[in-house]
Structure formats: structure tokens, C-alpha cells
Write a protein that binds this DNA or RNA. Sequence first.
RNA 1: CGGGGCGUAGCGCAGUCCGGUUAGCGCACCUGGUUUGGGACCAGGGGGUCGCAGGUUCGAAUCCUGCCGCCCCGACCA
Length: 488
Amino acid sequence: MAKEITSREENYSQWYLDIVKKAELADNSAVRGCMVIKPTGFAIWENMKEQLDRMFKETGHVNAYFPLFIPKSFLSKEADHVEGFAKECAVVTHHRLMNNPDGSGVVVDPDARLEEELIVRPTSETIIWNTYRDWIQSYRDLPLLINQWANVVRWEMRTRPFLRTAEFLWQEGHTAHATRQEAIEEAQQMHEVYARFAEDYMAMPVIKGAKTANERFAGAEETYTIEALMQDGRALQAGTSHFLGQNFAKAFDVKYADQNNKEEYVWATSWGVSTRLVGGLIMTHSDDEGLVLPPKLAPIQVVIVPIPKPQPEIMEAAERIVAELKAQGISVFVDTDKKKRPGFKFAEYEMKGIPVRIGIGKRDLAENKVEVARRDTKEKMSYGLDQIGTQIKNLLEEIQNNLLATAKKYRAEHTTSVDSFEDFQSVLDTKGGFISAHWDGTTDTELKIKELTKATIRCIPNDQESEDGVDLLTGKPSKGRVLFAKAY
RNA sequence: CGGGGCGUAGCGCAGUCCGGUUAGCGCACCUGGUUUGGGACCAGGGGGUCGCAGGUUCGAAUCCUGCCGCCCCGACCA
């Protein structure tokens, strides 16, 4: 049978596209740069949403929804912000179509031009802060802790499913606080939530850190980021949390009266993760056989394959196992397709990343056991039927842990400290990954390194140790190492 | 926006250079049968505006002109 998935070694980006397609996560759509998220891909996103939403609510946030369209004038109110997004905005200019007089279909009605164009939101700070002005009068209205689940549009030149699409799904938290300190703590708290989610649910280890001025969100005073390392040695920015200072409060005139009835501008944060996480999930764990999913986010955790085909006594055993697994809260699917043979099914479920496969045949049943195969290591085991529910539950936990441990090991092996530009270049060219090096703190140097090597500063790590050194390009003094990598 | 490639059945492709029966192959799909512990086999069957629009010609998937779309690689970005 022909290889269905290009190997990582042969062509990493084709491998990624093959997985997205063969695991039925997403399709290209008729609209350039936009994907169709298929049921399996969407189920993964729904599982992510469910956990994140719970974590947001546990930290005191509530959901709301703001408009898709933003008046053009709003976007111009914060100078850095507009500069950051202006180049990639979709703009609505008309509100009506008409039949083409020549009968060739519909055309835009030239008489239906909008007085003020609307921007399809690339992010919602402006429309939200324009609203917050009306919602906030007193310190009693603070903190305001709101999140929204939404779609946004950024007109990208080049797109890849999940990693970068013109339209994507995300959540954006927007909070307002009475003090600078409280806002900073909020941004840091959500940064922590993202890191915990990535490691505990996605089994994707991340480095927590701050962005340099150059890489910061347009309009932020500080951007915190979680950075993950993909299997091709490139870094993926997986989530960001911003301390926005009073920039948006001033731009939209959002003030509150403090306890002494003195008017003050409020302090802001915003934070988001997107469907890009699905891309990160794929590239963290998957292999040349296909998708590998961590049990905690897998839409189906266990698949049962009757061998050689669904027969009454086998199906009876399958139903008993299903009941036991469901009692343990495990999601399970029984493949009752009579036409496909077991071998085909095995390959297919491996491609789709289902964490555990249970094969039930007469030979097994005669011995009161089943064949259990784990997707992460491809190991096959024989489990007795007695404690199948708890055994599988334990196995799923072990798989979850193993995926995180394997990813951590990969990251450790692909994080290198270097002290000279030559070493920097050679590590980048050979094994890639994170490179820990001294930097003189200037945007100039950062940009020069990017120009020479394509590597960027992914973050100034939270756990950065103070260490005297010299910048690897300029030789100027540095007080600590930052993390470089080529990024997605 | 630069550089490369491609539009022929749901998917993947051949045919295009050098115009000529009824446009073909693999996978998938439908029917029947034999199979069945790692991607089964046989037989039969359905499915096409050959990207679009002009042009040349007795005749165009094939030649000419124009247009449209998509993918990959780069610069920009979650």
C-alpha cells in the first residue's frame, strides 16, 4: 500500500499538511486563506475550549460577545495598535448587492457605499474599550473581567491550516483594573493559566517569558508569551497575555472615580489563544504514521475493533467493555464496519491519532482477554477483562504523561546555550531549536540578528538567571540570556 | 508582492510537445460473490461543462490570445 503520509524527514511541511488532511482535521475551502474545520478538528478545539473556559471562570471571568465589525475610526485611536494591524484588515465598504444590468450575476451596488467603512475585527480591543467607557464609572465597577469566544480576521499573505489562516477562532480576554499592579498580576495570572493548560492538557511543554519591545503586541506595555518547540526545531508562539497599561483607557477615555472621588484612567489587560493551538498539538506529538493526540483532548480516547469482524459474541464482549469504559468517563467508539478489514482499520486509527485501540477476537475471548495497542509507543499488550475499565484509565494517564515527558526530552535536547555568533549560526543550521544566548537589549541588534539568521528572540524567560556576558553579535555587555529560535 | 508548479470524475494522475475513433488509469463509490488476527480479491457498474472566454481549423484537452483560480517556496504575521 502506498505511503499516505510524507515523512517528516522528507518534507516537514508536507507532512503537516498530510496529517491535517488524512486525520480529517480540516480542508481547504473555496475562500483563499480560510479553512473548513472538519468535525474531528473541531472536536479537538471544543475540548480545548471546554477546559480553557472552565479555567477562565475559575479565575473569575465571565463571557460576553462584541460585534464582528469595528468602525474604522475606532482603530485609529491608538497609534501603535493601528500600525500593528492596518496592513492585514478586511474592510466592509458596501451593504448591498444588485443584479448586474448585463445579466451576468450580482455586483456591488455602487449606491450602497457605507458612510464609514467597517473593519472586520482583527482583535477587539477598540470596540471593547469603546464599550467599557460606558460600563465603568467607579472603582466599584472594577475589576471588569470579561472574555469572548469569537472569530477574527487577519488578511495574511501566506496561510497554513490552523497555524495561520485568514479567519481563525480564538478567545480574547479583556480586563479593566483600578491599579497598575493589579493589571500586571492579571496578565501574569492568565499567562500562568495558558502555560498550565498547554502542559496539563495538550502535553505540550512551554517556556514562559516576556516579549522584547520589538515582538510585543501592538499597543501593549508588556507581552507575556508561552513558547513551544515543534519537531522541526522551530518555535511556536502558543498564547500571549498583554499588560496594556493605560493606552486604551486614554485612547477611549475610560476613567473611574476612586475612593476619594478622584478621576483616574483604568489599567488594562488582554490575552488570547487560538485554533493555532491545534496546529501546535499536531506538531508536538505526531509521527510519520499520522496524528498522535493526548488522551485529555482526544475526541475519541479508545476505539474497539472487532476481529475479524463484528460477530455476536464479539460484539457482546465489546458492549461490556464499552460500559466499563464509560463508567470511567472514557470516550469510546466501536467500529462495526463489516467491509473494512482489521489491518485497514488499525492503520486508519493510527493515522487519526486515537490514543488506545482495543482489538477483540475469538482467540482473545477464549482466554478472557483483549489486545490493547497504545498509539504513542505503538506497543501492544494483552489485558484481562476483569479490570479493563481501570486498566485503560491508567493507560490513558500514562500515555498523557509519556507524551509530555517525550516532548520535554525533545525540547531539552534542542535547547542550546551558545556564546559566539559562529556557534549560534551553526546550531541554527544543524539542529535548530531554542538557543539561549546573551543579547545587549537593543532592538537594533535584535533586528540585525534576525536579518542575518532568520532567528528571532522568542522571549526573555521568566526563570532567566542573572549572568554577566556579552552580546553574541555586538560584544556589548549583557546581564542574562534570552531565547532565540526560528519561529512559525 | 517576487520565484516555481499546477488546473482533465470525489481524490491522485496520464494524455498536451507532434490536433484526428467513443478522453484513459489508480484509489474511492455502487451491486454480487469469495475472503477476514496489520492497509483482501474477482466480476460487473455509475460518475467528465478537460479552469473560463475568445480565436485558428473540416476537426481542439492538445495550437494561439486574454482572463481566473489553486498549491509550494520567500518577505509580513497568532
